[in-house]
Simulated assay, not measured.
Amino acid sequence: MKTTWDIFCTVVDNYGDIGVTWRLARQLVAEHDLAVRLWVDDLKAFVRLCPEADANAEQQYQQGVDVRHWPADWQGAAPAQVVVGAFACVLPAAYVEAMRAQATPPLWLNLDYLSAEDWVEGCHGLPSPQANGLRKMFFFPGFTANTGGLLREASLLARRDAFLQTPGERARFLQGLGVQLEASARLISLFAYENPQLANWLDVLAADQQPSHLLVPQGRVLADLACWLGEAHLPVGAIHQRGALTVQVLPFVSQDDYDKLLWACDFNAVRGEDSFVRAQWAGAPMLWHIYVQEENAHWEKLEAFLGHYRRGLSDAAAGALSGLWRAWNMDQDMAQAWQALQPHWPQLRQHARDWAAEQATRPDLATALVHFYRNSL
C-alpha cells in the first residue's frame, strides 16, 4: 500500500502557493511513489499552471496527483497518513477533528515560506502542540543543511543542461513562443509585481549600445510596462521596440515551459517564491522581486538571502548585485544600479551556475519531507 499524503493549498495571492504545492505533489508521486491528494480552493489558478486541468472538476487526476477542489462547505474526507498544510493555511475543522479521532494521528506538517533568515534553522522540525492534543510540526525550506532544502526534481539540472547544450533546442523553444531574437541581443525575462522603478530600468536598456529583448509573461507588471510604452493595453503577442530594447508579451505558460524560458534567458527578473527558486536552478544572473510585507519586513528576508548568495563574489561584484536588488525592491534608481552591474557580468554568470550546483548537493525538499516522515515512524 502506498503511503497517503494530503496537501492543502489556499491560493492567497497570484500563483506562488499553488505553484509550490503543485510541484511538490507531482514530485512526491513521480519520484517517491506516494498517493497524493492536492486540495486547492481556487482551481482557476491551478489551471493557469496546468492548462490541461478542468477548473470545474471536484476531482481529477493530473500527472498522477489526485487534485481535489477544497470547497468552503467541507464535506469530509478520511485523513491521509501525512498531512501538509502549506504556508500556514487553516485546515477544515472537520478534517482536523477526524485527524484527532484516529488511533494513530497523521504526521501534520506546516510547510512554511522560504526564507534565508538565521532563525529558520532553529525552528525547522520543531513541534507545535495543539489545544486538541495533536502536534503540528514546522517544516522550513531553506538554503542550508539545517533546513528542508529547495524543490528540485531529480532530473532538473540534467534537463536544463541538455536544453542548453543540444544544438537548436533553445532556438526551437523560443520560436514556439513567437520570439525572433537578434543574434547579439541579451535575452531577459520579466515576471514581477508592480514596480515604480521599471521605467528607469527600461530607459537605460533602450539607451544601451547592446540590444536587449525583454520577454514579459502575462502578469501584474504589464500595467507599468504599458504606461512606459504609452499603450492602453498590451495583449499577448504584442511586440514594441524603443531604441535598443525590444519588448514582447508572452502568454502565461505551464510550469515546465516557464523553466525552459528561464533556461533560455541571459537574465531573469522573478517574483515571489516559486519562480525565485526556479530562477536559481536556471543558473543565470537574476533579480528577485520579493513579496511586500507590512513595515518593510521583507527587506530583512531580502538581505538574509543576499548574505548567502553573494558569498564567493568579489567585493565589487557583490556590491553591484546587492545594489541592483535593493534598487528594485526599495524604490531606488534602477538605471544607475543596472549600469554598475555590467562590468561584472562574466563573474555573475559563473557565480549563478556555481550557486545552483552547490544547492544541488543538498537533499531536495520533497526528499527531505519523505525522510522526515519515515524518521517519525
Rank of each mutant, 00 (worst) to 15 (best):
A238V: 13
D274L: 04
Y291W: 06
H233V: 03
V96P: 14
W263G: 05
D259Q: 08
A78Q: 13
P217H: 13
H69L: 10
D41M: 02
R23W: 01
G219L: 01
R326Q: 12
H124K: 08
R37F: 10
P217G: 09
H351Y: 10
R374F: 10
D259A: 14
A269S: 15
R160Q: 00
A77E: 13
A352W: 00
L164C: 00
Q210I: 14
L341M: 05
D203S: 14
F305D: 11
Q350M: 13
V204P: 12
Q350V: 10
D274P: 12
D66H: 14
Q59F: 12
R242V: 02
Q255K: 06
A352K: 07
R271Q: 09
W328K: 11
A30C: 01
S314I: 01
L34W: 07
D331G: 12
L215C: 04
A316M: 04
G176P: 10
G323C: 02
D257L: 08
P235H: 05
L126I: 11
E300T: 15
L187M: 04
G219C: 05
A366M: 01
P251L: 02
P129K: 02
V40S: 03
P285N: 00
G133W: 02
F138M: 12
G16Y: 01
G149T: 06
A94T: 08
S254G: 12
Q81V: 08
F87D: 06
A317T: 08
T144G: 06
W22Y: 07
C89R: 06
C227H: 15
D118P: 15
K260A: 12
D118G: 07
P92G: 01
L205N: 06
Q130V: 07
S212R: 06
S189K: 04
E117A: 15
Q130Y: 00
R135Y: 15
V67L: 01
W328C: 10
V292R: 14
Y193V: 08
V20G: 08
E31W: 11
L262A: 08
Y258L: 15
E169C: 04
V67S: 05
A145I: 02
Q175H: 11
N132Y: 07
C50F: 14
H351E: 01
H298G: 03
D41G: 05
I290K: 12
L181Y: 07
S155W: 06
V216Q: 08
V120C: 05
